[in-house]
Amino acid sequence: MSAVIQNTGIPADVAGATGARLAIRRFLANRIAVVGLVVVILFILFCFVGPFVHPTDQLHTALSSANRAPSGAHPLGTDATGHDELGRLMYGGKVSLLVGLAAGLLATVIGTLWGAVAGYAGGWVDTVMMRVVDAGIAIPALFILLVISAISTPSLSGLILILGLVSWLVPSRLIRAETLSLKNRDYVLTLRAIGGGHGRAITRHVLPNSVSTIVVAATFQVADAILLVAYVSYLGLGVQAPATDWGGMLSAGLTAAYSGRWWLILPPGLAVILVVCAFNAIGDGLRDVFDVKGR
């Protein structure tokens, strides 16, 4: 953003303050987006502070207390290995939120760099890079993920890396389009004329001026990634026991659900839906604030 402000000649702090205040006001005017933000904050508190309020043992199995229905001691009952389901919802939520956030942000970083370089370079470099994106989009991510799960079981950081590597394609298209419209602006041409390199043009002008597109893309990307984490656990590529996440809880509770034990699948299912909805709502709100096209 600083580049815009420098070029308008308005002192940065003044322009920044009014801009930020205006942006916050526009965001707060979007009621659905505000609800989304509140839901995300509540879930973060639930998953990270909740275990101190409702401490449970999520590491050891306790078969003597397995498969209990909801009661005072276990508000959401217990699962087949005796874990308290409410505590497990917090414990699994940490993994879902952290992996989703990390993978979504990683995908945005890769997509941003790829799209900015392709759009800025133009010509055959752009053509080749964007055909690679087309090919990546043509291979459904779930299929690739299932092949990987048949080959090996990744660690937590490996999982984040894999998720990031299969989901950077959409943001790369958005950032490329943005770069195409920015690269012939006067301030970029000026920088080039006074001897600034291409890398400097991208990092100093193209990326800072694409920041609104990047932020909106990142928000949607995190929503998609949290959903993808649930799918990945369902496909058997998720974190390994005793660790779990909401998707892992869902696939573990599948058979129990058929026999009427709703408390094993409804809470994690609703948690995924609520959090993904919330991030999408925030993305919608930010898109309106920044007036960004796309998605």
Binding site: A223, L227, A230, Y231, Y234, G247, L250, S251, I265, G269, V272, I273, L274, V276, C277, N280
Partner: peptide, 9 residues
Amino acid sequence: VAYSAPAFF
């Protein structure tokens, strides 16, 4: 909600 629900759920 429909967009955010995992299909298997």
